[in-house]
Nucleic acid binder design. Structure first.
Length: 476
DNA sequence: TGAAATGTTGGGGCG
DNA sequence: ACGCCCCAACATTTC
């Protein structure tokens, strides 16, 4: 009997387009699928919303693997030690995994690979969940791209060369059963209190991911370019958490879109716009790969001296959706309730924290990390630095979103605001994004008491804008 | 993947 | 009829 191969699952909780799993399944011996819950080395621990998702995603993966014949082994602890022990227990001669690209994971995995190899165990890593790995797309002079558009021009043509790995249909189980933690023991699902009631719309796991993609392609892709900025409608793919956990890979998405295009003749504006968003994900990964300290410090060094304010009350108002700006508050409450926020609104609330409140983007980044089901180091860090103006290809600092205009433009009837800020549900559309401008009689007729049932704006937009521009002048 | 300030233009009211 | 002014509407520039 050939020795078993361990497949170490990380951010690739899927059976399709899983190179490591496919390679292991193609060998003679049994396959031991393993997931390690490692809260120590290997980057920051997942936030609360991510833990909620991980719980369901692992259960789904375990079911799928059972169906293929090889049960998922769950273990907790330092990855190096867990792997060493499992290899000894099982007599495995190979450990396969799909690569991660953040600094902490790279350091850990490199060491593990060397240790395993030194112990006579073959350690192999495979291309994971990107269209192009971070080091593959370079400018003519060999440096990484810092601006998205030229990056995408170069990356876009390369993605056509790679197709997804075949779906794994059958696995040979390890003859001897291996100990596995009961997943309940990891307490990933919140209790006392269980605040996850609003997460019920999600279906973590590979099946849920494929269904989400199918629904999106079938009904929303065509209009994506126009609808994706409308938080009052469901124009986005909602694939972000599935992508983060690797329940579906970008390559699968490209593949499905391409076959869709072949059927209809030509690429549509919708599919190109959507691909571009997947391209942003790759772009962010390669930014963080080439500048790993951007997790903690601004990519543009002049922002190191930025005069951020300290204001716990303002931060709390932002976090809890009580800034008095309806579109901001709606977004923050959608996030808190569902673990997700529409991308357009993410830009608005982020701009508000950084520019209107002059609070350090890292405070917002940490909050998103804890509350988003799709919290992803590269996307989160790059996104916040983009908004703050300190990142690569960033929005210029003087570009200050006006939350009233943004609301009127992208949520014209206030449908989104009414949904998430029920205190304002009866406000006339004219004033839904600026209730403080409504005549007293109008407010009274709707039962709104500013400062009582809904807050007054915690900052004045014009003043905040001037203050932000002045702060920028100080570091310029 | 903005907004606000400033500049320009052209139609219409009006003396 | 003519010029002046007002002010949308749009364009450009500045932050």
């Amino acid at each position: 009997m050939s020795p078993p191969t361990v497949v170490w699952f990380r951010k690739d909780l899927r059976l399709a387009d899983n190179e490591a799993l496919f390679a292991a399944a193609s060998r003679d011996g049994p396959v031991i699928p393993l997931y390690i819950f490692d809260e120590g080395v290997g980057g920051r621990p997942p936030g609360a919303a991510s833990r909620w998702w991980l719980d369901k995603s692992l259960r789904s993966l375990a079911e799928d693997l059972n169906r293929l014949g090889a049960p998922l082994v769950l273990r907790r602890g330092g990855a190096a030690e867990v792997l060493k022990r499992l290899v000894a227990e099982s007599g495995a001669k190979a450990v396969y995994w799909n690569r991660l690209y953040d600094q902490a994971s790279i350091v850990r995995d490199t060491r593990i690979k060397a240790d395993l190899n030194a112990g006579g165990v073959e350690a192999l890593s495979f291309a994971g969940g990107m269209l192009n790995e971070p080091w593959t797309v370079k400018t003519g002079s060999g440096t990484p791209y810092r601006v998205f558009t030229p990056y995408w021009r170069a990356a876009r043509v390369r993605i056509d060369m790679c197709g997804p790995a075949p779906v794994v249909k059958k696995l040979r189980a390890n003859p001897a059963p291996l100990a596995s933690d009961p997943i309940d023991a990891w307490a990933l699902h919140p209790r006392a209190p269980d605040w996850s009631g609003g997460f019920a719309g999600w279906r973590p796991g590979e099946t849920g991911a494929l269904d989400a993609l199918k629904t999106f392609l079938g009904s929303r892709l065509n209009a994506y370019q126009d609808e994706r900025n409308r938080p009052d409608r469901s124009g986005t793919s909602r694939l972000s958490p599935h992508l983060h956990f690797g329940e579906i890979s970008p390559r699968q998405i490209v593949d499905v879109i391409r076959r869709d295009e072949e059927r209809s003749g030509a690429p549509t504006a919708g599919s190109e716009a959507f691909l571009r968003e997947i391209g942003w994900r790759d772009f962010n990964y390669q930014l963080l790969f080439h500048a790993s300290d951007m997790e903690h410090s601004p990519l543009n060094p002049i922002f190191g001296g930025f005069p951020w304010r300290q204001d716990r009350r303002a931060l709390a108002a932002w976090q809890s959706g009580r800034t008095g700006y309806p579109i901001v508050d709606a977004g923050m409450r959608e996030l808190w309730t569902t673990g997700w926020m529409h991308n357009r609104v993410r830009m608005i609330v982020a701009s508000f924290l950084v520019k209107h409140l002059l609070l350090d983007w890292q405070l917002g980044e940490r909050w998103f990390w804890d509350t988003l089901v799709d919290a992803d180091l590269a996307n989160n860090v790059a996104g916040w630095q983009w908004v703050a103006g300190s990142g690569a290809d960033a929005a210029p600092y003087f570009r200050v979103f006006n939350p009233v205009l943004q609301g009127e433009k992208f949520d014209p009837d206030g449908v989104y605001v009414r949904r998430w800020v029920p205190e304002l549900a009866t406000a006339p559309s004219r004033f839904i994004h600026q209730p403080w401008r409504a005549p007293t009689a109008v407010l009274a007729a709707c039962g709104i008491r500013l400062g009582v049932s809904y807050p007054e704006p915690i900052v004045d937009h014009a003043e905040a804008r001037t203050r932000a521009l002045a702060a920028y002048e100080r570091i310029r």
